[in-house]
């Protein structure tokens, strides 16, 4: 069996309806009306030991809800979850010992203690052997540069520092599995890169299984071999990242700056998908044409100032799925949409 098994997982929230006016308020004291919101709708996947999986989807897709159920702080409405054999919400404390969790939006450290004391508390809470604690602290320090702020109370840390402290705290007790809900949110480029290399290190050298959610596709591209894409509580795609790129790699875009404005540009096998001043974005299929062939054809007819080639970005693909509510198969077959 895989390390993490999720079968037909569903979660619906009951939301009390607010009733208008005074009589409504009184009535709601005795008889509340509810609407239900389906946050996760029949999700299944399984994740093996050592995998690093990107769990992505637009706002409100149900990512955090899924993570919360995997950690045991939320009970599924139906469906099954096994995390290393445990049912998280039934064996919450035992599960807590085998997982590490970071919610980027909020810290789990003690707000008004110096950072180092939060770590020491965790050492006691998880009963981490002193040697192990020292080794871990040394390693985390090396990559995350914790020393810089260990004596500072958590509430005074910058966002980047706090995130570093939080992820270190989540890993102190050597969890087998790490859940990261938006671990790079609000970080600058350098801090993001540092966070990523830390996650990569933990996954590679310690074999920690990682599931992370993010809105930054470059997190996924740089970290994950596999991505699970969800929308409206359902899985839209689950598979390798490279497969999407290969399929989409068939189309490429040539960006051409012409010397002068051209009204009647046309060329066989090339479609103009955008234009701005003298610049044109030209889409072509690279299995039919090569870029150099096209460039020479264009330069025979027109004066070219500058030229560049763009591979379709994963972002574009994802946006299509979000915006047009496509399943991946649809996107693959309806290629004119890119």
């Amino acid at each position: 069996m895989s390390l993490i098994e999720v079968r037909h997982l569903c979660k619906e929230f009951k939301i009390a309806k607010r009733q208008e006016g005074l009589t409504g308020a009184l009535r709601s004291l005795f008889h509340r009306q509810y609407t239900t919101k389906i946050a996760v709708n029949d999700i299944s996947f399984s994740i093996g030991t050592g995998e690093m999986v990107g769990y992505i989807g637009p706002n409100g897709a149900g990512k955090s809800t899924t993570i919360k159920m995997l950690t045991g702080i939320l009970v599924p409405s139906s469906g099954e979850i096994r995390v290393n054999g445990l049912i998280p919400y039934k064996e919450r404390r035992r599960n807590a010992r085998q997982i590490g969790v970071v919610f980027g939006q909020r810290t789990q450290l003690w707000w008004d203690l110096p950072t180092i004391e939060s770590f020491e508390l965790l050492k006691q809470i998880f009963q981490i052997p002193p040697d192990r604690y020292r080794q871990n602290m040394a390693l985390f320090n090396e990559i995350l540069d914790l020393d810089e702020f260990l004596q500072t109370p958590v509430r005074q840390l910058s966002l980047g520092q706090r995130m570093r402290a939080d992820i270190a705290a989540a890993l102190l007790h050597d969890p087998k599995i790490l859940f990261l809900d938006e671990p790079t949110i609000g970080l600058d480029v350098v801090a993001k890169e540092r966070m990523r290399s830390f996650i990569r290190e933990i996954n590679k050298n310690r074999g920690v299984t990682v599931i992370l959610t993010t809105h930054d596709m470059s997190d996924i591209e740089k970290l994950c071999q596999r991505m699970i894409l969800i929308d409206k509580g359902q899985v839209m795609y689950d598979g390798e990242l490279t497969k999407i790129k290969e399929t989409f790699g068939k189309t490429r875009i040539l960006i051409v700056d012409f010397e002068e404005n051209i009204d009647d540009f046309s060329l066989d096998g090339v479609e103009v998908i955008k234009q701005e001043g003298n610049r044109r974005w030209l889409k072509f299929n690279r299995e039919v044409h090569t870029a150099s062939q096209l460039i020479s054809q264009i330069s025979e007819k027109y004066e070219i100032k500058d030229i560049s080639i763009q591979d379709p970005e994963i972002e574009v693909l994802i946006r299509n799925i979000y915006e047009h509510n496509y399943t991946l198969d649809q996107v693959f077959t309806d290629k004119t949409r890119i």
Partner: peptide
């Protein structure tokens, strides 16, 4: 603040 849920992530 909703922090109460996260207290439940701890083994105490």
């Amino acid at each position: 603040t909703g922090d109460i849920a996260f207290e439940m992530l701890r083994p105490y």
